[in-house]
Simulated scan of single mutants.
Amino acid sequence: MCICVIGDELTAGTGDARGLGWVGRVMARTQTEEPAFVAQLAVPHESTTALSARWEEEVRRRHQPHGDNRLVIGLGSTDLDEGLSLARSRLNLANILDGAAASRIGCFVVGPPPRPDVDADALASLSGAFADVCQRRHVPYVETFEPLRTHEHWHADVAAGDGVHPGQAGYGLLAWLVLHNGWHDWLGVPTAS
C-alpha cells in the first residue's frame, strides 16, 4: 500500500516537538497487512490552486503501477489568506478528486482546523464547501473545524506555540478526529486496539 499525503504545513506537523504531526500519530495506530509506504508531501502555506497544480506529478512518482495507491489531502486555510473565492476552492478540490478517481486512486480528505488569525465564519464556510465537494463524490471528509472551534485544549495548545500551529496535544486531537471518522474503514484495515 502506498499512501501519499499532500497539503500544507499542518500535514508536515509544523509546531510538533516530536515531529509526528497528525499523520505520524494516525499511521502509528494503523495496522496494515504489510507496512505501508507513506509519503508526506507538504508545502507550507499552500493554496488549493497550487495543490491542484502539483498533486498529480508528486503522486505519480511514488505510486506503484499495480499497487494499492491512496491519496490523503490535508486542507488548510491558505485559500482565505490568498483571497480565493469559495467557488475556486471547491473547483480546485473537485479537480484533484476527479483526477484521482480517473486514475483509480482512493482519496481521503481532512478539512482545515480553526486558526486564531483567520475569520472563523469564513473558515467554517470554506470547510463546509470542501465537505460538500467530498460528499458529492462519496469521498470521506473529516470535519476538523467545528469539533475544534471551541475546544479548550486545541486553543490552549495553539496559543502555547507560535499562535498559529498546534503542538503535540493539538496534533493528537487532529489524529483522533481522523481515526474516528472513517480512516480504518477507508483503508479496509482493522481498528488498532
Rank of each mutant, 00 (worst) to 15 (best):
I3A: 07
C4Y: 04
C4K: 01
V5K: 07
G7A: 08
G7T: 05
A12L: 00
T14E: 14
G15F: 03
G19E: 05
G19W: 04
G19I: 01
L20M: 14
W22G: 06
V23W: 00
V26Y: 11
M27T: 14
A36D: 04
A36I: 05
A36M: 07
F37L: 11
V38C: 11
A42D: 11
V43M: 10
P44A: 02
S47W: 08
T49C: 14
T49R: 15
E58R: 10
R60I: 06
R61E: 09
R61C: 10
H63A: 05
H63G: 06
H63L: 10
H63E: 06
H63P: 00
Q64T: 08
Q64S: 14
P65G: 07
H66I: 13
D68G: 04
N69Y: 13
R70N: 04
L71I: 04
V72R: 04
L75S: 05
L80D: 00
A87Y: 10
L91R: 15
D98L: 15
G99L: 00
A101S: 15
I105V: 07
C107I: 01
V109L: 07
V109S: 02
P113L: 14
P113W: 15
R115C: 00
D119T: 09
D121Q: 13
D121P: 00
L123E: 03
L126R: 05
G128E: 11
A131S: 12
D132C: 11
R136E: 10
R136Y: 12
R136Q: 15
V139E: 02
P140I: 13
Y141K: 02
Y141F: 07
F145V: 03
P147C: 12
T150M: 03
H151L: 13
E152K: 05
H153D: 10
H153Q: 11
H155Y: 08
V158Q: 01
V158S: 04
A159E: 06
V164N: 00
P166C: 09
Q168P: 10
L174M: 15
L174T: 08
W176R: 15
V178A: 12
L179K: 06
N181K: 04
N181W: 05
G182K: 03
G188R: 02
V189L: 05
T191G: 08
